[in-house]
């Protein structure tokens, strides 16, 4: 089985989808000849032609609107927003139009659209290139949101997203693009939307996280086992919508303690949602309050101090200690 980076795994998924289904189109800013600013779509235009893989003008709202118009006619568009911070230029088309299409037409039309976008910090990118705005999307009825933490999941989740009849925002963490290689099957396989994965089994406390924070959680879990003699279970959400509460609750019922770890600012995000749901669904299983590790409620930190702003292994270890207090 070949070793792939996340860039390669996502490229692979796009190529397979384009090959298998002529309704699939790939477009966005610089995705054609240039192959995308991160080279995810490199060579796709050459292989599949300018009518299926094409550059758009620099106009994010039009990209979203175009996607919906094309979806009405039976295409399955996979559009790219060059950096997730530019999603606001598209937000009306995404949240007010695409996300509500199925509802407005009472299922006579849907919007089987995937919006891919690089995001996330830790690579010295400036603000609005590095922010984590997924909480905004999670509060938008009608959207699914997938955030893979590794190449294998990235390919399988993207293929599922393209096959899904709902609009899916697919967020690609920039720090993970080329930093990890992993065995990834060459052909088609799917990772279902809405299934979290236990990436480390443990008995004492559950860390619930996603995206680039999965790796951090695993490192902290390892250290906690060695130094604190705590057995930590780590859950990778993989999709934040749908949120696999069943899996989360099952784990927390076993461990009795939970920490939610996110890269997005602290207030009103996915961590807050998971904490609230645990209160509603698992409070009698909890032996201590659920804790949250997240950056402060500020814009993304300017790049030369971002490592102090982003959650650290030390903060996670501290939370593991505190969850027993």
């Amino acid at each position: 089985m070949p070793q792939m980076t996340m860039v390669k795994a996502i490229h692979d998924a796009l190529a397979l989808a384009l090959e298998d289904d002529e309704r699939v189109l790939v477009f966005g800013e610089d995705v054609g000849k240039n192959g995308g600013v991160f080279r995810v779509t490199e060579g796709l235009q050459e292989r599949f032609g300018k009518e299926r893989v094409f550059d758009t003008p620099l106009a994010e709202s039009a990209i979203g609107g175009l996607a919906l118009g094309l979806a009405y006619t039976g295409f399955r568009p996979v559009a790219e927003i060059q950096f997730f911070g530019f999603i606001f230029e598209m937000f009306d088309e995404l949240a007010n139009q695409i996300a509500r299409t199925h509802y407005r037409y009472r299922a006579r039309y849907g919007a089987p659209i995937v919006i891919r976008s690089p995001f996330g910090g830790g690579v010295k990118a400036p603000e609005l290139h590095a922010d984590s705005f997924e909480g905004l999307l999670a509060q938008t009825p009608g959207l699914f949101v997938a955030i893979p933490s590794n190449p294998y999941d990235a390919k399988g989740l993207l293929l599922s997203a393209i096959d899904n009849d709902n609009p899916v925002v697919f967020l690609e963490h920039m720090k993970l693009y080329r930093s990890v290689k992993q065995e990834v099957p060459e052909g088609r396989y799917e990772v279902p939307l809405g299934e979290a994965k236990v990436v480390r089994e443990g008995e004492d406390v559950t860390i619930i996280t996603y995206g680039a924070m999965v790796k951090l959680a695993l490192k902290a879990a390892e250290e906690a086992a060695e130094k604190l003699d705590r057995s930590v279970e780590v859950i990778d959400l993989r999709t934040i919508v749908p949120l696999d509460m069943e899996r989360i609750s099952r784990s927390v019922k076993k461990t009795g303690r939970a920490i939610v770890l996110q890269e997005a600012p602290r207030q009103a995000g996915i961590a807050a949602e998971v904490m609230a749901r645990l209160m509603e669904e698992a409070i009698y299983e909890l032996e201590s309050p659920v804790l949250r590790v997240a950056p402060p409620h500020t814009p993304y930190a300017f790049n030369m101090i971002e490592d102090d702003w982003l959650p650290s292994k030390e903060q996670v270890i501290k939370a593991i200690e505190e969850v027993w207090v």
Partner: peptide
């Protein structure tokens, strides 16, 4: 096909149709 209340959202949709045609 429907528009919605923030006006003009239907204009890029029309462009999508036209591309398909």
């Amino acid at each position: 096909f429907t528009q919605s209340s923030p006006t003009g959202s239907q204009i890029p949709h029309a462009v999508g149709f036209a591309w398909a045609f």
